[in-house]
Design a protein around this nucleic acid. Structure first.
Lengths: 113, 113
DNA sequence: GTCTACATATAGAGAGCCTACATGTAGACT
DNA sequence: AGTCTACATGTAGGCTCTCTATATGTAGAC
């Protein structure tokens, strides 16, 4: 699974991963992989720009740190970010309900028969 | 709910609606609205080109009809279309599992505590 | 000395969904 | 007669996001 069906859901994924702990980009990618059971392999060229977009929107703040000689940019959810995450969760539910309702197989005809 | 989160799922929606009965574009739009509980309002500028794309891919065939003085283009699933629909359904499940697994709220920490 | 893991970043391409517009019939209402 | 709404299809252009490919650099293992 790795088409661009992700489109429009990247924000939710990133915010969700950052909900309880600040992480840097590379760690975010790994966390997404783990949490999705290995299904999600989001490329760096997707994550880094997306994080900057979310920061620009005010949902994240970032600060540089140096760990073991390597520089990291650690992202943290803002208040607005938490609010946005709640909105994304509810949107996700509505989304899956809507699509699921259409995709659900009809056994040629409903109960009325 | 009407962002472009639909992206990548339009095909599944259209194929699913056409699974048991051939329909024309306008009726497809209404069917999507009904089946999704009113959540989906797909604009004509999205549906008509998408139907043509699916026909080009060999998943649909179409023929013109005149009903009540109005011309309709009725679309019907091909064998390849049925196969594609099955694939889309399984992809949808994988997709929701993956995203859902990430989005699921963590109660600050898991069961281990 | 090379390779892999760690770590960030940008440019450019590609796909597809949406807005807006164009066109036309049928029937109801005024 | 004229207008409005529902029915019905279609195209052009824009926009946004995701992906591929590339660039750069450190640390540690072999």
């Amino acid at each position: 699974m790795n088409t661009d069906a992700l489109r429009g859901h990247m924000d939710a994924l990133l915010l969700s991963v950052l909900e309880h702990e600040p992480l840097h980009g590379y760690a975010i990618i790994e966390a997404l992989q783990v949490r999705s059971g290995g299904a999600l392999s989001v490329p760096t060229g997707t994550v880094y720009p997306a994080l900057r977009r979310l920061e620009r929107l005010g949902y994240l703040t970032s600060e540089w740190a140096t760990v073991g000689g390597r520089k990291r940019r650690t992202y943290r959810l803002t208040g607005a970010g938490h609010t946005a995450l709640a909105g994304e969760r509810s949107a996700w539910r509505q989304f899956t309900d809507a699509i699921g309702g259409v995709l659900a197989p009809r056994s040629t005809e409903g109960p009325a028969r």
